[in-house]
């Protein structure tokens, strides 16, 4: 994983609450055995019309949403299935951060492990961002704030270990593998008990 310290982008907004991972990537596409190429399937049934053309009612299909890598989503984004295909699809689609007043647990963990900034912000600021799509934001992972165009700042707090891994490009499996001695000790105690 590459280190991530800052991210600049305009925002795109999906205001619906409870956007579940089935909506992010429908289950029928889960027969894949790789992580790649899921971007074209991201939000598939919402994004395309029956004939395969873009659905103009899907907010991310609007011209002004193109190229935005920060998504402001309605409360409880990523609920439902634990499929990691959801963050894989979002990243491949070009979304690098999701801002929300509440993010489903498993999705948040999956996202951060893949370098997708799943960031929980206060309700008041969340509401404001939902109402103002297309504004330019800068996310500072080290200092944990989001800079607004007028100089204002929205603070946030990432789980410290996840933040450390993002900033340093640390792979969590590598960290776990280093704990081999403690794991071995635990297994021996367990066997003795």
């Amino acid at each position: 994983m590459n280190p991530i310290t800052r991210l600049h982008s305009r925002t795109a907004v999906l205001a619906d609450e409870n956007i579940d991972t089935d909506r992010i990537i429908p289950a029928r596409f889960l027969t894949t055995t790789t992580r790649e190429g899921l971007g074209q399937l991201c939000f598939h049934d919402w994004r395309y019309q029956a004939d395969g053309s873009d659905n103009p009612a899907f907010p991310l299909n609007r011209p002004e949403a193109r190229g935005c890598s920060i998504l402001v989503a309605g409360r409880n984004f990523g609920c439902g299935s634990s499929r990691e295909h959801a963050p894989w699809a979002l990243l491949d689609y070009g979304i690098q951060a999701v801002l929300c007043s509440e993010i489903a647990d498993i999705f948040r963990g999956n996202a951060l492990k893949n370098g997708l900034l799943a960031i929980v912000i206060d309700e008041l600021e969340h509401r404001w961002l939902l109402k103002h799509p297309g504004i330019e934001l800068a996310i500072d992972v080290r200092e944990q704030y989001i800079a607004l165009p007028d100089g204002g700042r929205i603070p946030f707090r990432l789980e410290p270990f996840a933040r450390h891994c993002l900033l340093n490009g640390v792979d969590q499996l590598g960290y776990l593998l280093q704990q081999g001695e403690a794991i071995h000790r635990y297994e021996q105690q367990e066997q003795a008990a």
Binding site: E84, K113, Q172, L173, L177
Partner: peptide, 11 residues
């Protein structure tokens, strides 16, 4: 998630 499936497999 699948990354964690890998963690559990390895450790």
């Amino acid at each position: 998630g699948t990354t964690e499936v890998g963690h559990v497999m390895a450790t």
